[in-house]
């Protein structure tokens, strides 16, 4: 379970939010909502441990994440704004590197299957620089098919630049992950067709 207590975030001189508590239980899908500039991405980065909150503490299974970073990051999959693709490598090489650098043993066939499933069968061996925005996005999202055993998924705007069919497939994957006891935290401006309506955290309500 992910539990964050009394979080505060300050960007420059400007406080974004204060006294924010987040609780995500197994099977739960939390959607962080709010207008641009209200700290959605900042909150996700704080929850990942990439940024430090101004105050407050984040606990994973009742242990503060800075005390046991290793086991927290072993259960965490974060997909941020930047797709983490290198232009000189093919989607397959990028995906394989993303998995193996994270310490996961993923075989080549599973990577190919994931890329085919997400609709990149024709682009497996092309350098990533020739891919469109939506296709670049998909390479990152293909990790979701491979790393279901990472319990907590934190996704920053996963639906950006995706077509309707891809959004439907992605929401199905997210619902499946939650049904299997996983947790998902995501931000989105679109109304995605989730089977079970997600819990919504509106940052406009806690803004300073």
């Amino acid at each position: 379970m992910l539990y964050a207590n009394d979080l505060a975030c300050v960007k420059g001189d400007r406080p974004l939010f204060r006294g924010l508590s987040v609780r995500v239980a197994p099977g739960e899908l939390l959607r962080v909502a709010g207008p641009n500039g209200y700290g959605k991405t900042s909150l996700l980065r704080i929850l990942c441990g990439l940024a430090m909150p101004e105050s407050g503490e984040i606990r994973w299974n009742d242990v503060p994440i800075n005390r046991d970073r290793e086991s927290y990051h072993r259960s965490l999959l974060y997909l941020g704004h930047a797709p983490a693709l290198n232009d000189l490598l093919s989607p397959l090489e990028n995906l394989r590197f993303a998995c193996s650098s994270g310490g996961d043993k993923i075989d080549e066939d599973a990577c190919i299957d994931a890329l085919v499933r997400i609709g990149l069968a024709q682009q497996l061996d092309l350098p990533a620089r020739v891919l469109s925005q939506g296709q670049r996005r998909r390479v990152g999202l293909a990790r979701l098919f491979l790393e279901a055993d990472r319990k907590l998924w934190i996704l920053d705007e996963p639906f950006t630049a995706l077509d309707v069919a891809a959004v439907a497939d992605l929401t199905a994957t997210l619902s499946e992950h939650c049904a299997a006891g996983g947790m998902v935290v995501l931000t989105t401006h679109q109304d995605a067709p989730f089977a079970k309506p997600p819990t919504v955290l509106d940052l406009a309500e806690v803004a300073c």
């Binding site: 990942c48 990439l50 970073r69 290793e70 990051h73 965490l76 650098s101």
Partner: peptide, 8 residues
């Protein structure tokens, strides 16, 4: 970012 989030 992804590398910093690896458990190792």
């Amino acid at each position: 970012e992804q590398l910093l989030l690896t458990p190792e």
